[in-house]
Every structure is written in C-alpha cells, then in structure tokens.
Design a protein around this nucleic acid. Structure first.
Ligand SMILES: NC(=O)c1ccc[n+]([C@@H]2O[C@H](COP(=O)([O-])OP(=O)(O)OC[C@H]3O[C@@H](n4cnc5c(N)ncnc54)[C@H](O)[C@@H]3O)[C@@H](O)[C@H]2O)c1
Ligand SMILES: NC(=O)c1ccc[n+]([C@@H]2O[C@H](COP(=O)([O-])OP(=O)(O)OC[C@H]3O[C@@H](n4cnc5c(N)ncnc54)[C@H](O)[C@@H]3O)[C@@H](O)[C@H]2O)c1
Lengths: 239, 239
DNA sequence: CGTCGCTTGTGAACAGGTGCACAAAGCGCT
DNA sequence: AGCGCTTTGTGCACCTGTTCACAAGCGACG
C-alpha cells in the first residue's frame, strides 16, 4: 500500500521550518495577550514576529483552520492551539549535566520554567560541587546520573560539560532513555536515529556573523558581488 | 544590464547553508590537525562533521577546487582556506552588553578568543557592576556605550540583557556603527536591512525538542503518521 | 608507460520552503 | 437581504538546498 504523502506530512503533519517558527509566534502572542488585544491579523502578528504575512498564514494553516476571514485570529485560542501543536500541554522535566559557568546561568534562568519546562536535576562530575543548591535544586554527582534520570523519567537532557566529556555524557543519557538532547558543548554528537539533538554553539554563530562582516567591508572598497579573490598556493602555514 | 546570477552567488558566492556548516568543518579539521593527520577524504571529514559526503564536497567546491582526486584534502591547507572564506584572517573585537548570569558565563568563556574573536568591552546598566573585572576586562556603565563602541571600532555586539531592554540596546549599537548582533534575549529585534542579527534562544530550542518528544510518545500508543486529533472549539481559556 | 583503484567535483533530478496573487468567506452597515 | 470591505487559506511558480550518480583526475604500482 503506497502512501506517497510528502515527507513532512509523513513525519508529523507540520514542516520543520514551521515548527521552528511556532515558538516565536507563541511568544509574540503572549505579549499581545498581556496587552489585552483580543485578535490579531496575520499582518500584525507577522510584523511582530519578523516574518512575511503569507508565510505566517501558511504556517498556521498547518495546524488547522483557526482564524476568521475579515477579522484575524483570536489571540488566546491561537496560543492554545500552538501550545497544543508543540506538545506544551504536557510538562517536560529536564536535566542539566555540567554545572559550570554556563550550567549555573542556565539553572538560574527564570524563563526556563515559563513554558512547560522544569529543571528536575543538576549533575556535575566535580565532587566539590555536589550538594550545592541552585534555584532550589541540589547538584548531584555524575555517578548518580542513571538513577536520577530514571527516577524523574527525564526525556530531555541539556549538556553543558566541556567538549571532551560531551559524547560520553550523551551516550549515558541515551542509554537510560533520554530521547532529546540540547548540546552546548562545541562537538558533533553521535546518537541513534531515534534521538533528537539540537545544538547551541556560540562560536559558530560568531563565525557566521564574521563572514557577513567580511562581505560588508569588502564591498566598501571594491566591486559589490565580486568573488573571493584567489590566492596563490604558497606559504600556507604562514597565515 | 541584467545580471541574472542566482541569488546566493549575487550575495557572496557561498550559499547560506554552506556558510553555516563551514565552522563545523573548521572545528573538526582542527582536531584532525592536532592528531597529526595530513589529509582527509570527504568521507572521513563528513562522518566527523555529521553530514553526507556529497554535501561536504559541494560545500567545499564553493570555496574553490582544493583537494586532490584519489587522495583527499590537505588538512592544514583546508583549515586556511575555510578560515579565509569565513573572514577569520581578521580579528573582530566584540562587546557584550548585559553582564548578568549569562553575560558572566560568556565573558569567562575561553573558547571565545580561540577563533579570532576577542572581548573588547563589557557593558551593564547596573552602576553597582561598573568597575568589576571579569577575565581581565572591566565592566563599564551603559552611559559610556557609544564612546566604547567607537573607541574600539566594534562591529559585532552581543546582547545579554533582559528582553525588555534588548531593542533599546540594539538601536544604540546600530546607531554607533555595529553591523552584526548576536542576541540572547528572547525578543525579535528590528534592525535596518544592512545589519545582521542572529539569535540564540534556549526556550525555542526546548520547544522544538518538545514537539518531537510529543511525536515520539504519540507513536507509542497510536498510529504513526496520524494527524493531530481535532478538538472542538470549547473552553478556550481553561487550558 | 599503461593500467587500476580511489576520490574529487559536478550535472541533474528531487525535495522542501517561500512569496505572490486571488478566490472564498465572514462581518458590519445600510 | 444585499453589498462592500477586510482578511484568511491556498494553488502555483520560483528558488534554495540536498542527494544521487558518474566522468574526470590523480597517484601508485607493476
Ligand atoms: N561559558 C559560555 O559562555 C559558553 C558558551 C558557549 C559554549 N560553552 C560550552 O559549554 C560548556 C560548558 O562551559 P562552561 O563555561 O560552563 O565550562 P566550565 O568549565 O565552567 O563548566 C564545566 C562543568 O562541567 C563539569 N564536568 C566536567 N566533566 C563532566 C562530566 N563528564 N559530567 C558532568 N559534568 C562534568 C565540570 O565539573 C564543570 O563544572 C563547554 O563545552 C563550553 O565550550 C560555554
Ligand atoms: N541565563 C540563561 O541561561 C539564559 C538563557 C537563555 C536566555 N537568556 C536571556 O539572556 C538575557 C540575560 O539573562 P541573564 O540570566 O543573564 O539575566 P540577568 O538578569 O542575570 O542579567 C541581566 C543583566 O543585564 C543588565 N541590564 C539590564 N538592562 C540593561 C541595559 N539596558 N543595558 C545594559 N545592561 C542591562 C542587568 O544589570 C543585569 O546585569 C535575558 O534576556 C534572558 O532571557 C538567559
């Protein structure tokens, strides 16, 4: 029985690009709701979210036909529908592994819990850190990792360890049932296909910005649109 | 004079998707270089970077025809070429605005300076923070923002203030010449077209993971690929 | 020097995502 | 009820990016 639906539909019914934007809409809608606005047009919402209105309408159309022609979308109802589509009607406990500089900031981050996420565990390899309490959560030692993950039925792990430890930690998380990982360490993690990994990488972001900076300054004293000037293959190591 | 080159070429010669991956290749190549490996095949490099080998070859082909058929790519030379393409032969001073939990972590982050970036200034609105020294840099008060940016000729700004202050800070940065912004605050920033903004948003990442989590657990006790069940439009506010 | 095996670079097909433009649909006003 | 104004939802064309598959190129080896 061939089911030649397109790949996006086969997986979830909602395209990845849309899923990545839904949280932005959700946040903007939250602000609208607080200011008491009952409805928004696609135009208004799109402007606030920094996207085109057609794209926004197409995104929302994947969730269903909410919205009233001639009027717009009911803010509260749309918040509910997007939340439901994203799976935010459930609460997800998360564990943070590696409570150094970054891990501390994450643990203290208030915006964490606002949308259905709750820090259930903090884990670090350094025995001196064990026992320290941050934001009401006690740091536990790495030895207890498996116990803690299973005890709290954690399915989302946040890795904030040094790069060298990340793959190891990730393997252990996956082994005890974690199926989603948010990785702050600058490494490519290898995981089974059934596990989702997203990465947040500061230095990659900066390097992308640097690329565009270079483009801009090159344009100032040269032809716009010229290719990168080629260099003779000499003195490689000197640069 | 019509110049119907494709849009990617018109902008820079290198597609955006490729630019976003080059830093990953660069990091992996760095590891290879340290372990003394003289050359890599596209297969080997692709595996370490977590991409397909064809994609990697196409990416590299946008920089030029480095690489030797039957052999692979010279690791050191490729590092140099990618660095050059990304504009990392120059050094970029960056400013961090907002030195709270997150700002402190960023300022202490060693991996920052490793690839041509250097923290040139720390700025915070809280007068009690002014004078504090982190990683050898003194925190300055927000009032001095314009002076500092111009003094150091900073073109890349990192915003780590609360969301409410982000747009304001961004406007001021742009006004004194900053052309690239890395935004950690959960807000959509409005900027002129000539300015690049990239955002790092923890809660968006988590929400995307939550979406996939939901998909997985739905699959366990239902049909895979079913659409989201529709709900009657009642009791909107109750959820 | 010719041949063989390996790996690059790329044309071409494909897939996913975007933006335009408009018909369909609801609302309010007369 | 009818009309006109507004805004949604979507078909369609376009464009960017991915994947496949293979000819061309290079080194090694006999
Ligand atoms: N600090 C930043 O702003 C920043 C920015 C981007 C990326 N990162 C990355 O985030 C990671 C953490 O950065 P940081 O500045 O917090 O470093 P850090 O050295 O301050 O903290 C690392 C923590 O991880 C713990 N740890 C080490 N091995 C562990 C293991 N196997 N299991 C559990 N915990 C372990 C250490 O005890 C330490 O507390 C690094 O990979 C870094 O590259 C940091
Ligand atoms: N802490 C995290 O892990 C984390 C994660 C993701 C996103 N964020 C976001 O990053 C931002 C900072 O988070 P944080 O935890 O460091 O908050 P924080 O409250 O600890 O720090 C904010 C700092 O910004 C300063 N500030 C306020 N207004 C300012 C202004 N107009 N100009 C300059 N400085 C100003 C404050 O004095 C304070 O030092 C927030 O927008 C937060 O939502 C934080």
């Amino acid at each position: 029985m061939p089911v030649p639906r397109d790949a996006a539909s086969r997986r979830s019914g909602i395209p990845d690009a849309t899923v990545a934007r839904l949280p932005i809409y959700l946040r903007v809608l939250g602000a609208f709701a607080e200011s008491g606005l009952p409805t928004v047009s696609s135009e208004g919402l799109a402007a606030a979210a920094g996207v085109g209105s057609a794209k926004l309408r197409k995104d929302l159309s994947h969730l269903g036909s909410y919205g009233t022609r001639g009027v717009g979308y009911d803010v509260e109802y749309l918040v509910y529908q997007i939340s439901r589509a994203l799976g935010l009607t459930q609460h997800y406990p998360v564990a943070i592994i590696g409570v150094g500089n970054l891990g501390h900031a994450l643990a203290n981050y208030a915006g964490f819990g606002t949308r259905g996420f709750q820090i259930a565990a903090l884990v670090d390899a350094d025995p001196r850190r064990a026992g320290e309490v941050i934001a009401g959560i006690e740091i536990r030692h790495l030895d207890e990792l498996e116990t803690i993950i299973k005890e709290h039925e954690i399915s989302i792990g946040v890795i904030a360890t040094p790069a060298a430890a990340a793959q190891d930690v990730c393997d252990r998380l996956v082994a005890c049932g974690v199926t989603s990982v948010l990785n702050f360490a600058p490494t490519v993690l290898a995981v089974p296909e059934s596990v989702d990994v997203r990465k947040v990488d500061l230095s990659i972001e900066l390097q992308i910005l640097a690329f565009h900076e270079q483009r801009k300054s090159a344009g100032l004293h040269g032809e716009p649109g010229v290719a990168v000037p080629d260099v003779v293959r000499t003195s490689v190591a000197s640069a």
